[in-house]
């Protein structure tokens, strides 16, 4: 099966204030259509790893492959393009551009990609919003909707360019159990209906248990890599 994401011996150091070896020999892969979760104690390096995987952080040793293509060492301009086209990212805090409408927020990455006409983008964006049950918010300002709604807008934005993989850093961390469950169901549906690959950092055991695979992290190392069947 095709590998959407693969890392080979990734190491990272924080050099300030003192040298700190935060990630140690991280090697793993995410297959196409797989829904993987990362768990681990606070400070074990989950977010740090996710930033590297998202190509935003380039200060590491080792190799990162996206769609079986080496991305390590590519110039920033090229990484921006890859991120735009292939990676959807959902943050723990629902980061939206507060001065833009919900619809504009969702459309922005696609406008940047400029692969479709504005009308098509708007149509696709409305489709994503409908799928997430927030179509009625489309013309509201992003700063004037609830946290749970913002999280779903962020997911819609992450999906607008039909990425190869959706990454989330505690995407349900800020949500009540009802909304958290809602987001989980959305992810699950995306995987099942559209064959999307997902990699989600979470502290929520129930959430992780229901994913295909749990990657356990401890002190910057992968300490367990269990598929559903092995659990």
């Amino acid at each position: 099966m095709k590998k959407v994401l693969q890392t080979v011996d990734i190491n990272k150091h924080f050099r300030k204030p003192v040298d700190f070896h935060v990630l140690k020999n991280i090697s793993f892969e995410v297959k196409k259509g797989e829904f993987a979760s990362i768990m681990g104690k606070s400070g074990s390096g989950k977010s740090t790893l996710l930033y590297i995987l998202s190509t935003m952080d380039t200060d590491y040793e080792g190799k990162l492959y996206l769609n079986e293509e080496l991305v390590t060492g590519k110039p920033h301009q090229e990484l921006s393009r890859l991120r735009n086209k292939h990676i959807g990212f959902v943050f723990q805090f629902h980061y939206l551009l507060s001065e833009f409408s919900v619809l504009e927020n969702v459309m922005l990455p696609a406008r940047k990609l400029a692969a479709r006409s504005d009308a098509e983008i708007e149509h696709d964006a409305m489709e994503k919003l409908e799928m997430l049950n927030i179509a009625k918010l489309a013309n509201k300002r992003a700063s004037r909707i609830s946290g749970g709604e913002k999280q779903r807008v962020a997911i819609a934005r992450a999906l607008i360019n039909n990425p190869s993989i959706l990454m989330g850093d505690e995407p349900t961390g800020n949500l009540d159990s009802y909304n958290a469950e809602n987001v989980f169901q959305i992810f699950k549906r995306l995987k099942e209906e559209q064959g999307l690959s997902l990699l989600v950092v979470t502290h929520d055991h129930d959430f992780a248990e229901r994913t295909d695979r749990i990657i356990e992290m401890e002190d910057g190392r992968i300490s367990g890599n269990l598929t559903d069947s092995a659990r």
Partner: peptide
């Protein structure tokens, strides 16, 4: 700053 970070995270380059 936050907006800049979001733009960059969603694929806008430094030049953009």
């Amino acid at each position: 700053m936050k907006d800049i970070a979001i733009l960059k995270a969603t694929g806008f380059s430094g030049k953009d």
